[in-house]
Design a protein around this nucleic acid. Structure first.
Length: 269
DNA sequence: ATGGCGCCCCAAGGGCGA
């Protein structure tokens, strides 16, 4: 496999963030960038701006909320828009095939509060996601990258104050079990695998001076199928995108990046 | 103790995010 970079970013409105996203594309040059929380309809996605920057756009938008997209240097050979939960029109799952890879841009429900209706919906959504993935892919054979805002902090290391957050939204055991049940199918958090002890966050609340105090959570991921582990070269989080730069106001999430490349033995050479 | 930010929308303040 040639060098191939995949990034994911919850942008919290693509219309507000387009200039910063384009700037990120210029600096980082991802082959694929998965976006979440577009907060715009499919028709209103700034497709021409990305086209001018050399990217195709696959978009599943929605008025006001949600919305996912995948921009890519090469045109996908297939695009799938999914509603995992019957009757659910929320734009949360977009999937493409490109260069022999299946790439998903997903936006898991937030869940509001443990025990709420939205929390039940979140767990149901995860159950449907797991069922779909189990039916659709063989992670030992198919090359799959699951990227997006999973809205779960899978372990205490992914939370700035795990004692304070214990059992609460993003950190509750049923949510963590749901996230783990996806991984158990044969998908891997390569970033954590590579940096088992690092404090890595992908989201900071806009309030409470959370970013300056580094009170964050790691809830955005690029999970790879087992078949892709030999091709994983590096992974990182674009933390600097959370800083204000000039007139550009940041999203509350930052990009998570995965670099694939020629097969190797896992770094023991 | 509460809310504290930012974005959305029939435009003013409520819904939503996490």
């Amino acid at each position: 496999m040639e060098a191939f970079t995949i990034a994911t970013w919850n942008v919290n409105s693509i219309k507000i963030r387009a200039a910063q996203v384009l700037d990120f594309c210029q600096r980082t040059a991802p082959d694929v960038l998965c976006l979440q929380e577009l907060k715009c309809t499919t028709d209103n996605f700034p497709r021409p701006d990305f086209e001018a920057a050399g990217y195709h756009s696959a978009v599943l938008g929605q008025r006001q909320y949600n919305g996912v997209a995948i921009i890519s240097r090469r045109e996908p050979s297939a695009v799938h828009e999914l509603s995992l939960v019957a009757g659910d029109s929320a734009a949360r799952w977009l999937q493409i095939e490109i260069d022999g890879l299946h790439i998903v841009s997903l936006y898991a429900p937030n869940g509001n509060e443990v025990g709420s209706d939205k929390y039940t919906y979140k767990l149901n959504w995860y159950a449907q996601a797991r069922r779909y993935l189990q039916e659709k892919f063989n992670p030992e054979r198919d090359k799959v990258v699951l990227t997006g805002d999973f809205n779960v902090a899978p372990a205490d290391i992914d939370v700035h104050d795990p004692k304070l957050r214990a059992g609460k939204i993003l950190c509750s055991q049923p949510e963590r079990d749901a996230w783990q049940s996806i991984c158990a199918l044969g998908y891997h958090d390569f970033l954590r695998h590579k940096y088992p002890q690092a404090v890595l966050y992908s989201w900071w609340d806009y309030r409470h001076l959370s970013f300056p105090l580094n009170k964050g959570f790691r809830i955005d991921f690029t999970l790879v199928s087992s078949s892709l582990l030999p091709y994983c070269r590096d992974a990182w989080i674009g933390r600097d995108e959370r800083k204000r730069r000039g007139d550009l106001k940041p999203s509350d999430h930052v990009p998570v990046v995965l670099a694939l490349g020629p097969e190797h033995d896992g770094g023991h050479a």
